[in-house]
């Protein structure tokens, strides 16, 4: 099994695992970019357009777009659709609110040479420990 480990700051405790959905340009927080009740990415131009975030480990460099970012993820969570965990290259306010609000394990603030958006590919199987900041990647290929 081809595996790889990364270590960064645990931002929200808990262990989560699932397939990676890597969004190198993040996901817009604007209304309609993420389906409020189905958790599907509808952002035009997003490499994961049409992908549902449910049970995935979302890998992003940061958040972007509207400050409504957290609210759209939270709405989807209450509707029953949520990512299993977050990995973000760096923490920012938009994402921080989403993490705190949804209570989902998160790891962030990676070293410059360990950017998860570069190291992880969509479909890799990811296990994160939001308390210790450990990330275990099992490569898909």
């Amino acid at each position: 099994m081809n595996t790889f480990r990364l270590k960064a700051r645990g931002a929200y405790p808990g262990i989560a695992e699932g397939p990676a959905v890597v969004c190198p340009d993040s996901i817009a927080g604007n209304s309609g970019a993420l389906g409020d009740t189905d958790g599907v990415i509808y952002e035009k131009g997003n490499v994961n357009y049409g992908v549902c975030i449910n049970d995935a480990i979302l890998v992003v460099p940061c958040a972007k777009g509207s400050n409504g970012f957290s609210a759209h993820f939270k709405g989807a969570q209450i509707a029953g659709v949520k990512p299993a965990g977050w990995i973000s290259t760096r923490m920012d306010a938009r994402l921080g609110v989403a993490v705190a609000s949804m209570g989902i394990p998160a790891v962030t603030d990676f070293a410059d040479d360990e950017d998860p958006v570069v190291k992880i590919k969509t479909g890799d199987w990811i296990k994160i420990d939001g308390a210790t900041g450990e990330v275990l990647i099992t490569f898909k290929y």
Binding site: G29, A63, N67, G68, F69, S70, A71, K74, D92, A93, R94, G96, V97, A98, A100, S101
Partner: peptide
């Protein structure tokens, strides 16, 4: 100020 989300605001 930061781009805090709705819940934080």
């Amino acid at each position: 100020g930061n781009s805090d989300g709705v819940e934080a605001a």
